[in-house]
């Protein structure tokens, strides 16, 4: 399967099933487009008809030879050898290796788009996770992780720093169990920044592998959607704290992460604003919200958003040229390594190797399902009760999803979120707008690779 497209002056050809990526001239681009369906004579005639005398017959035949050579080498028109190998997902034994720990179902902001319903998660009451529940959750993770060594715990909410003492004690507890259990804990934390102080910063720089700092971009954009409980914006409080935190972070990972909505479809300006503030690791994602909300992304917005992704890609290349590179999370694509095929095809792991734990110890497939009783899988005291539901999540792989199995992005996207349920009432469907945007981001990410490769050649 071939996916080819033009972007920012580059003709890009992706050989989907081998992962090969080629940048080609106009002649090869057109020949590849018709290569499988036409004879060589027909190709020559079609090219001559389109370009007149621009290319000689010798040029065209040589290009055909180059293409045939790549095909023989398994770098073009490669067959899909994976769909039959991966088919038996349901029988695979899965272990838990990551928990999203809802350390606080409470929040000091009142963000309008919050899928956690300001920390209350749709009817769950405001509460903080106790140390006892947290310890039991870590025990559950260790006991259910089989022979996995690397375990991950994300402190999430609500606002995790509203329960900072328990966060600290749980990290200490996890570290105390690492050696005897033969495990390595990787702790991560997401925060809105309101409670960031020197003690929190020191702790995070010692113990937290990746910190996600929530900021939507420009002051007016951020404050419209992320007010505090008294209605005032959060920008002026959090930006100085984030800057201080990032300056102290050294080489440890962080992301300043924003959400864009229908109110700021020009989100490249927010990216630029955050980059100009000195943040070098940035993520901006489209809002996930019910269709009827006034800020929800609509189908009619897709074209504008795709143009915006193009602008963002060009800005990233420019910053690279100026020697001040900034990372945009969804444009990170490891073309030379990346995860193995098994990982690429088996999806995000929600409901199987990744579970969310509520403050009372209930288990859900991931943070986006918390509060939806239908998806409560069990609890940390009695383990998984709904194994049939876990089996359904095991099947969340790209070849089980009709919309994904022939999609050119399937080896980079892995089927997206199981939470397409919110839009299609099936975890085996795909969220259409999300898919469109994901495909566009992958196209831009590959184009950036082409541009940076050209830059390196020129140096």
């Amino acid at each position: 399967m071939i996916h080819q497209y033009k972007n920012n002056g580059y003709n890009i050809v992706l050989d989907v099933c081998s992962g090969s990526v080629h940048v080609v001239d106009d002649l090869c681009y057109d020949i590849i487009e018709m290569y499988e369906g036409k004879s060589q004579d027909e190709i020559v005639a079609a090219i001559r008809s389109k370009y007149g005398e621009l290319y000689t017959e010798k040029d065209i035949l040589e290009a055909c030879e180059d293409i045939e050579e790549l095909k023989k080498e398994g770098q073009l028109f490669t067959e899909d050898v994976y769909k039959d190998i991966i088919i038996d997902h349901k029988k695979r034994k899965t272990v838990v290796k990551a928990l999203c720990l809802h350390i606080a179902h409470d929040c000091n902001l009142a963000c309008k788009y919050c899928f956690a319903d300001e920390g209350e998660y749709h009817g769950q009451k405001r509460e903080l996770m106790s140390l006892e529940v947290g310890k039991k959750a870590l025990d559950f993770l260790i006991e259910n992780s089989g022979n996995r060594v690397n375990l991950e715990v994300d402190f999430f909410g609500g606002e995790p720093l509203m329960n900072f003492d328990v966060v600290k004690e749980l990290v200490a507890y996890g570290r105390s169990r690492e050696k005897e259990a033969g495990k390595n804990f990787r702790f991560t934390l997401t925060t809105n920044g309101m409670l960031l102080n020197d003690e929190v910063i020191d702790f995070c720089n010692r113990e937290i592998s990746n910190v996600v700092l929530s900021l939507d971009g420009r002051k007016e954009v951020n404050d419209l959607m992320r007010p505090s409980r008294n209605g005032k914006g959060s920008y002026d409080i959090i930006v100085p704290k984030f800057k201080k935190f990032v300056e102290s972070r050294g080489d440890k990972s962080y992301y300043v992460r924003g959400t864009f909505t229908r109110n700021n479809l020009d989100f490249t300006e927010d990216f630029k604003h955050m980059a100009d503030l000195g943040f070098k690791e940035i993520s901006i994602e489209p809002v996930v919200s019910p269709d009827e909300s006034e800020y929800a992304i609509r189908e009619e917005d897709i074209e504008k958003i795709c143009q915006e992704y193009d602008k963002l890609a060009v800005d990233i290349i420019d910053r690279h040229k100026k020697g001040k590179p900034v990372t945009f999370f969804h444009y990170m694509l490891d073309l030379t390594g990346g995860p193995c095929v098994y990982k690429r095809l088996s999806g995000c792991g929600s409901g199987t190797e990744y579970l969310a734990v509520t403050p009372t110890g209930e288990l859900y497939p991931c943070h986006q399902f918390v509060g939806n009783e239908e998806f409560k899988l069990g609890d940390i005291y009695n383990g998984i009760q709904k194994n049939d539901l876990v089996d359904e999540f095991k099947m969340c792989n790209v070849y089980a999803k009709e919309k994904c199995k022939d999609c050119y992005a399937r080896f980079y996207c892995s089927g997206g979120a199981a939470n397409s349920y919110q839009f299609h009432n099936s975890i085996l469907d795909a969220y259409d707008i999300g898919c469109e945007l994901q495909r566009k981001r992958i196209e831009c990410a590959i184009m950036i690779k082409a541009a940076l490769a050209e830059l390196e050649e020129g140096e």
Binding site: C17, S18, G19, S20, V21, H22, V23, V24, D25, L27, C28, E62, A63, D66, I67, L70, E73, G74, Q75, Y82, V95, K97, A98, C100, R148, V149, N150, E152, D154, F329, H330, M332, D334, L335, T336, G337, G338, P339, C340, Y342, K343, R344, S346, G347, C348, G349, S350, E353, C366, H367, F411, Y412, C413, S414, Q438, A445, I446, K449, A450, A453
Partner: peptide, 28 residues
């Protein structure tokens, strides 16, 4: 220019890699 520049060729589980897209994750 050369007609075809190959950026990468044929790039395509121990379960130890990081979990929460996967295309931008790294591998063992």
């Amino acid at each position: 220019m050369k007609r075809i520049k190959t950026l990468t060729n044929k790039t395509l589980g121990c379960g130890e890699c990081q979990t929460c897209t996967v295309g931008n994750q790294s591998c063992n």
